[in-house]
Design a protein around this nucleic acid. Structure first.
Lengths: 357, 357
DNA sequence: CGCGGCAGTCAAAGCGCTTTGGAAGTTTGG
DNA sequence: CCAAACTTCCAAAGCGCTTTGACTGCCGCG
């Protein structure tokens, strides 16, 4: 059994004061190289680590960042992109010596949890996930005066805040445009939850691309829900069995797209020939859409990279604040998605509609 | 802007001592109901929360649990089951007032991270994920004398420790047995990474079921790797294109099974008729294998429930230790997976092999 | 009336660290 | 040879909370 040693014990063992030992270990210049070396060795030998709680009480910094991941109260579902987002962010945190505090919270009482985390002073900053159209967390956190970065944006919020987002509008405009270029006219959109800000922007991009060609969006071809495989399957099946079915789908994530593919097969159609699909690809680690010719044509933007960059932004904001540079203006980053052609898109086959009937 | 108030300020405002205020808020009996009520109201009004860092320094308990999630250095992949596992555990933690500290760590330096977390005394306990066949973390943590629960087991470790596991051996024995009952003889196993303990147990169950019918396992039909969609696709495609292809697959997770289905379609075979699949289903929230007749025949065990129960076990262990009951013996729970029939299994069609050639 | 007992409150000591404000010891320069 | 200027170290004061031990009234009992 390994006994846990503290500063006092270590300093007594060395015959030095706590001050000196602390300074030696934290790299302060007031201590000679000889003592520093001796102290370092002893600390190593007894595998001494400063007690985090005491350290953060003394310094006022907890070296911890909070992520609050929403779990939908409807489906008890956790969006799988969080795994990769957190992996990216976590990498950045551990590099900088920060810990990550995770709160899994029903989306109904987000506000309470954020307020709690902030006033308990348990973290130095936090990241806001999945902002809604008008997200009340943002003004609340500004009010609480705690550093935060939003992954996404909230259209209904006036005033500046730090965010990192993908250019969803342009991504979906391009995705839809590609299908239009291929001759498709009946294009369905399988979007995320309508309350989410990103879903709104994606709708925008889709509608805009259609309008540019003089096509009005057909509400029958637009669906909103949590992005499960089953959602993709059910919606696509329903749409494909109508009298005027879509010949192409734009899908918000690879997971429902798997369901769409299932529905296409089930309808006796050929994926990528009779029906085209373009997805938004978050580049999930266990669902890599890669290969010489990836399965899905996609607008891609790595959610892991987003996590990493959000974390880096937040740490930078915290650093600045500690140096007293408070009025630097907000940090805002817009990432562009990249279009890659896969096996899921092809030109409209005029006869396809007939074949089906 | 909301100013953060501390105990001292609150007690001064009330004209009481810090002791009394602290006791009033923490429900100690030494304080009159009248004062308690007054204090509660004032705390509410100023939205006072005790500073976590100070509190945990004073009490010696950090009210935090650590999860270390491994990210494979090979594929930079995060196993998506962690999202649901953590959702389950997080529910339990927040109910008990605990926070969750998450470390995302390349699997190579797990030991360092665990030792670090333990000696920095930043958490009251931790959960070990994805144990390997002989997992060195277990003796290490016993040595460090910190409460922990293993999600899974490690066959190579002698000596008792707290764990919660699914009966993988029986689950895979049943899955394989079902396929054998349906007449299949060439049954492939798509397993997880060979280093994982659960993969070993699953191999066992599979092999045992075959042996019971006098069939020797064919190494050509067994694959081990990280459970991505692409892995399922590639392996199934390869196996299906041999001269003596399998007529059925047992697959370790729904994600590679999606890939297997893709390979089956691509080979021009019919899923569930020409080729059968039984999966192990972790009941992932975004990949629910449900419906009147679920897509996949499965041995199912909810990973979310596992998370919740692991968390409950750990909190119980911590509670006992605080009450001085150290020698209660280890807590060990074995969950049984439940078999449900879906659309992915059917009797062996003797002509199938011919059709294909 | 006096004393034990109890309810309600408080001052002060810690938890393990950082950091301030010296105090020694050592070197330099006039 | 002594003052000034470093260098190297230290004692002690906090950080914001809990908790111990003591203290003050006030009641009831002999």
């Amino acid at each position: 059994m390994i006994s846990c040693m503290n500063l006092k014990q270590l300093s007594e063992k060395l015959g030095l004061s706590q001050t000196t030992v602390s300074r030696a270990l934290n790299g302060y210049p007031e201590v000679s190289e000889a003592t520093r070396h001796k102290v370092r060795k002893a600390a190593e030998a007894h595998s001494y680590r400063p007690n985090t709680r005491a350290k953060s009480l003394a310094t006022g910094r907890s070296m911890t960042i909070a992520h609050v991941v929403p779990v939908s109260s409807k489906h008890e579902m956790v969006n799988p992109i969080f795994a990769d987002f957190i992996a990216g962010a976590g990498e950045e945190y551990s590099r900088a010596g920060y810990d990550l505090l995770l709160s899994v919270v029903a989306d109904s009482d987000h506000e309470r949890v954020y307020r709690d985390i902030a006033t308990r002073q348990v973290v130095d900053g936090l990241i806001v996930q999945a902002p809604t159209l008008t997200d009340t967390r943002i003004p609340m956190l500004q009010d609480l005066d705690i550093p935060f970065v939003v992954h996404g944006r909230s259209s209904g919020i006036i005033g500046a805040y730090n965010w990192l987002d993908v250019n969803n509008r342009r991504a979906f405009e391009r995705a839809t445009g590609l299908l239009l270029d291929l001759g498709h006219r009946r294009i369905a959109l399988l979007n995320g939850l309508a309350t989410m800000d990103f879903a709104h922007r994606r709708n925008d991009g889709y509608t805009r691309a259609l309008l540019e060609r003089g096509i009005a969006a057909d509400p029958e071809l637009i669906a909103h829900d949590e992005m499960t495989e089953n959602y993709g399957f059910e919606v696509a099946r329903r749409m494909l069995s109508t009298s005027n079915p879509p010949t192409a789908f734009v899908v918000s994530s690879i997971i429902p797209a798997i369901g769409v593919r299932r529905a296409i097969n089930k309808a006796g159609l050929v994926f990528g020939r009779d029906v085209s699909i373009v997805i938004h690809d978050d580049d999930l680690s266990y669902f890599r859409n890669t290969g010489d010719v990836p399965l899905f044509t996609a607008v891609r933007s790595s959610v892991r990279e987003a996590g990493q960059r959000c974390a880096a932004m937040l740490l930078e904001i915290i650093r600045r604040r500690e140096e007293g540079l408070r009025n630097e203006g907000p940090m805002q980053t817009l990432m562009e998605a990249e279009l890659t052609i896969g096996q899921s898109t092809g030109p409209l086959i005029p006869s396809a509609a007939k074949l089906r009937s």
